[in-house]
Amino acid sequence: MVTYLKHMGKYTHNQMKSKSFEEIQKLYKREQKWINDFVPMDSQVVKDSRKGKAEGSRKKTVARKRTCEKLNDESVKRQKIEDDAEKEELKAYLDIIPRDDETINVESLATKYLIVNWKTHVLSEDNMYYEIIRGDGSTKPYKIFTKMLDDFDRQDVLDLYMLVKERFETASLEGYDRYLWRDLITVFEPSEDDEIWKAQQDYTLISWRLFDSYGVHVLLMDIGVSIHMLIEKTYPLTQEMLSRMLSRRLEVDHECKMAYELLRFTRSQLQK
């Protein structure tokens, strides 16, 4: 409930820490009621209020619509041909690699608990893991951020980012926590002044992979550097790196609309 209120109700940590369970529960129910009672502009309630005015104008437009139907049908057919041609062209940049040997997380979002904390365990100089803790008390270890993406959805990534950012604002992150923060800030707060973007011309791209369950794509470099990006966000990638990405081809475990949208977006950036 606290995590929900922070994200949806914009409550701060200081506002929440002094409240009792009953007070938090009341705020939570009030916030949910506000969202559940919200009526979009295009809802049936609003539509009904305009029905009277629309009825008169509807009759006037029927004839015009019939006249346009043939032209619209022809336009749709032409567009479909163009879309199919573009899809075949984009397939050249797609590499479908099924991951049948991996365990796929099919846990329903309706029963999946939010991430509420994380701990970093260092066993030795070269042996460590991140322990992700969910609201029901369950935990799971991960060696690197990229491995988390096999289980995470978009909300999980956002929740972890907010948790790490909150701790970073009150305390100095050290050791492996700084690596986790670097991965997350690269996703959500990209800056061309960051070293990871300034040094990209020195990297050799090994693979470009899409996680379509939450819309993140990853660049894996030869020196172990991984760059994670949201598919809808523009990042300070050089023209040379964009060209390398298309030449290397996008790895997916199945053909999907998101892959074609990402390829189209990447190619448009390269053509600018």
Rank of each mutant, 00 (worst) to 15 (best):
L230M: 08
I196F: 04
Y260L: 06
Y113Q: 12
L246P: 00
S57L: 15
K51E: 13
L263T: 00
K10W: 06
T12H: 07
Y235M: 05
L246G: 02
D156N: 08
K33D: 12
M16K: 00
E22M: 10
D150G: 02
K140W: 09
R167H: 15
K165A: 05
I24W: 04
K233P: 03
W208P: 01
R64L: 12
D83N: 06
W208D: 00
K272V: 10
L250H: 03
R64W: 08
T238H: 11
T234V: 10
T120M: 11
I144W: 02
Y4T: 04
E166A: 14
T61A: 08
V62K: 08
L262N: 04
E69H: 03
Q239M: 09
V39Q: 15
H13C: 03
M16Y: 03
Q44N: 13
V106Q: 06
G9I: 04
N14G: 07
R178A: 15
K143M: 11
M128Q: 10
R248L: 05
D84H: 09
G52F: 13
Y235L: 04
D37A: 14
A171S: 15
N105H: 07
P98I: 11
Y11F: 15
M41R: 14
V122S: 09
D183N: 08
S226F: 05
K140M: 08
K70M: 02
I97N: 12
M245E: 02
Y130C: 01
D153L: 09
R167A: 07
